[in-house]
Computed example of a mutant assay.
Amino acid sequence: MPYPTALADALTTELGLDGSGRLLDVGCGPGSLTLLLANRFEQAVGVDADPDMLTEASRLATETGIHNTQWRHMRAEDLPAGLGSFRLITFAQSFHWMDRPKVASIARSMLDAGGACAHVHATTHQGVNGEEALAHPRPPHSAITELVRSYLGPTRRAGQGSLAQGTASGEGEIYRAAGFTGPQQIEIPGRVLTRSTDEVVAAVFSLSSAAPHLFGDELGKFEAELRQLLHDTSPSGTFSEQTRQIAIDIWRP
């Protein structure tokens, strides 16, 4: 699900963004946050370790007429890579994949005077459960999780590896050890969105724990079962989602 414009507006207000300076989005994926923030800066640079993500980011930038972006294929640990300095550096659902102490230290060294890092805590592949009535059925997330487990086993997969202990946490101590102060936290309320079957399927496959390659020769069978599950839940192919609150931690040197 897309990040809301309210996220960009909140950062603009808090950091006084005025179209000047540069943005670095680390672990940018398909540019979801990079493109949302690009028009608040003179230039926006997205870096990611997956070249296919950057191909999609470039396509979306062209499709939406955003021309002040640059995409670089690299691991975060390979920064600064001659990219220069930045007014804002963002990590959105990406920091836990990295050598966090090393990357936090590098990020601090790449900030302009008065610059900041923004760590975005969000869940954009699915919404929250609830009892309130929505216009359409909610996607059956618990059943989807069980379907994935029936194919891939109980240990959560993560791309080429696994996350037996779950996603890494404790980033606050890491930022402070790298010389940052804070955080100052901004909260963005959730909202209700309408989603199609194709969007829900794409969201499942976007997860490192359910990436298409993990299913091997059973990928087609899994997708067919997933689509049948979604059809049984909403024959119209339309779903409603109440998104989660987004929290942004702003860290300053």
Rank of each mutant, 00 (worst) to 15 (best):
R252P: 10
D18V: 01
P4K: 00
D48W: 12
E171W: 03
H125K: 05
G190H: 06
P101A: 08
S206A: 07
G153V: 14
P2N: 06
A49G: 14
Y175V: 00
A247E: 11
A107I: 03
L60V: 14
G114H: 08
R244P: 02
L33C: 03
D78C: 05
E131W: 14
T181D: 14
N39M: 10
M98H: 05
V148R: 13
A122L: 02
T167D: 01
P189D: 13
N129W: 05
V192F: 01
G84Q: 09
S169Q: 14
S85M: 13
T55R: 15
F239G: 04
V148C: 12
I250T: 07
L15V: 07
A135F: 01
G84D: 12
Q185E: 07
S20R: 10
S94V: 05
H213V: 05
P140M: 02
Q160Y: 15
D232C: 11
I246R: 07
A178R: 02
L230Q: 10
L54E: 09
D99H: 12
G190Q: 06
T194M: 02
H96S: 03
L83V: 03
D232I: 10
Q245P: 00
V200G: 04
A76Q: 10
D25R: 03
L193P: 06
V45M: 11
A81I: 10
A202R: 13
F205Q: 08
T34A: 06
R108I: 07
